[in-house]
């Protein structure tokens, strides 16, 4: 599994994560800041999640592979 961590303080609401993986990330309705829809995802999601990490201009997303 892949664990997903977000840093709301760093987030600037650019939205790349929602574009990359809309079933994992969303933006809060009141201020556009990132919301995690799920804290973990199966390994086959890795390419999309890595892309979300890499595209985030505020470096607000981190992922970890777990057993």
């Amino acid at each position: 599994m892949i664990r997903i961590y977000i840093d709301e303080q760093k987030c600037i609401g650019a939205g790349h994560c929602v574009r990359s993986a809309p079933d994992v990330f969303d933006q809060r309705e009141d201020d556009g800041i990132v919301v995690l829809l799920t804290g973990e995802a199966p390994d086959e999601q890795a390419p999309r999640l890595k892309k979300a990490v890499e595209l985030c201009p505020a470096q607000a997303i981190r992922i970890e592979t777990t057993e």
Partner: peptide, 15 residues
């Protein structure tokens, strides 16, 4: 920067 930007972010959200 972030304090001001956050007032406007929702207006440009993906959804």
């Amino acid at each position: 920067h972030d304090a001001y930007r956050r007032l406007f972010t929702r207006e440009f959200s993906v959804r």
